[in-house]
Amino acid sequence: MHVDETTVRRIARLARIKITDEEAKGLEKELSGILDWVEQLKQVDTDAVEPMTRVVAQDLKKRQDVVTDGAKVDDIVANAPLSEDHFFVVPKVVE
């Protein structure tokens, strides 16, 4: 599976990671190598196989739909790079 530079840039954009031209070239080779290697999974017949969703059969835990936590606004913004009056501050999004 060859991943070309355009694809690398598209993927990097989706992942929200800025990459340099040099990085894009290196990643083209590395990602292609890794994807070539995982191609061998095609040898396995999985037509009648269910995907694994749980490691151990266990009912999903349920709890009452009530508030058990909260009033931690200070904690939530404590590590924010920029906050004001308990809001996260980001660059302007809407013109």
Binding site: V38, L41, V44, T46, V49, E50, P51, M52, T53
Partner: peptide, 14 residues
């Protein structure tokens, strides 16, 4: 082609 396939292979490994 990738994630679902890999999760099926996982079932076979288990």
């Amino acid at each position: 082609a990738y994630y679902l396939k890999a999760q099926k292979v996982r079932t076979l490994i288990k």
